[in-house]
Write a protein that binds this DNA or RNA. Structure first.
Lengths: 243, 243
DNA sequence: CTATTCTTGTAACTCATTGTAACACGGTCG
DNA sequence: CGACCGTGTTACAATGAGTTACAAGAATAG
């Protein structure tokens, strides 16, 4: 449900080829989008801090940090949809691209019209309130008095105490929080953590869940926030989650 | 009507080539999905009427009604995500496919692994957190002082105590409460629980009912809320039910 | 560069849930 | 009154989940 006033969707293009960048920017502007075009990962990050971006078109080959890495990092802390472009038409790259969390993939050179169609398809599915896709806001997740700062990697308890967490616990909690109220299978959880976490087999999720609960749930026998669904997976059920 | 999150995601494959169909079905089943495979549009519609489908893999070339038309019709009345497959590698077809409302497109023959990755990607962005779009009303059921929160999976007794319940008991109670004052056969109950519960044979309902009553009915010999109808099934008869 | 500590995958064990069978109870119909 | 049928209940086994323990690997300190 979207209560926002009509607004232009803001695309961020990341590509080192200036010509292509400008071409795409003009094309999408003509089709009613707000567009920002930058040339590398550093500028991308700056843009994300300054704007509320709705979708990123990301070239795989970039000077400095490469597209795959950028995409993975991005996915770790926000749900902003990403469409990857690459000159290498290898099948493996496509798969890796998708597994790293991209929402779609296109080989270069690509027809702007097709890219536009895919952008629309992705946006149609992605439309979510800005507090999810928002840059700054996504780094801090709040629920029932808890505060998870994914950038500083800190978890603050309701009593203000800052807890010591391992990367794994933190990532898992962030995935759960981002999918609150939804039953997630172990498989889905692993899927979300792919790249941020070695991906072994399903029982390690149980383990990590157990470790998380030990830190967060006062009464281990009846968890309040992280519930188990037999044969299903886990649900994160804080009373309120926002921002 | 079903408002609860599905445990297994249910894929519907529509392809006229029996071999491919079976191959895909097996592959996805192995990866934890529930799969139904049919060969044309007619069967597809029947399947949609009988099951709660989460995603459709749709071949463009079909006997009878063609994939594009089916997809457009589908999109007109539901949001079920669709991934289109086609043997013709024409670029135009890809674009048309996306414009017609498909969520993704893949040329045939396609690598099952890639298809799986795309299915996951689409499902990931399709399943929005249910508290955003979902019907808030149905999540908390109230009756005679009891409160059943299906989302948080908790049952609160009239005295305010939160009871410890297994998922099975909870699901059963939720089905009963949603059909209050109506006699439900064991068959119907099992039907409602399909997918959310192992679906064995009818006596397990009796068992679960018994376990439920033990928790909810103060006097086991004369149940107040869950009544038995001989040769009929069970009725849930709270004095007042509010959603 | 090595030692120590922290993290996390894996296995083994325990506990909880639930399907299934067996039996008990009670009403119904001949 | 007695055999039968449907339901309630007890008991048990199978499966899944929680947890403890440990070892391998990564990170950190010295």
């Amino acid at each position: 449900m979207n209560f926002q006033p009509e607004k232009l969707e803001h695309l961020l293009i990341v590509d080192d080829d200036r010509e292509i960048r400008d071409l795409m920017a003009r094309y999408f502007k003509r089709h009613g989008y707000r567009v920002t075009a930058v040339e590398d990962g550093r500028e991308m990050k700056r843009a994300l801090d300054n704007w509320s971006i709705d979708l990123i078109v990301l070239d795989l080959m970039l000077p400095g940090e490469d597209g795959l890495t950028l995409c993975r990092d991005l996915r770790a802390r926000s749900k902003i949809p990403v469409i990857m472009l690459t000159a290498m038409g290898e099948e493996m790259d496509r798969i890796v691209g998708l597994e790293v969390g991209a929402d779609d993939y296109l080989p270069k050179p690509c027809n702007p019209r097709e890219l536009l169609a895919r952008i629309r398809a992705v946006l149609r599915r992605t439309h979510e309130p800005s507090w999810l896709s928002g840059d700054q806001r996504m780094t801090v997740l709040r629920f029932e008095g808890w505060e998870l700062d994914t950038r500083r990697r800190e978890l603050k308890a309701p009593d203000g105490q800052i807890m010591d967490m391992s990367i794994g616990e933190l990532e898992l909690l962030s995935v759960l929080a981002r999918n609150a109220q939804r039953v997630m299978t172990r498989d889905q959880i692993l899927d979300c953590l792919k790249g941020r976490w070695m991906q072994p087999f399903e029982r390690s999720v149980d383990m990590q869940i157990s470790r998380l609960r030990k830190k967060m749930e006062p009464d281990a026998t009846s968890p309040t926030m992280i519930k188990t669904v037999r044969n299903g997976g886990y649900v994160f059920t804080p009373s309120v989650t926002v921002e």
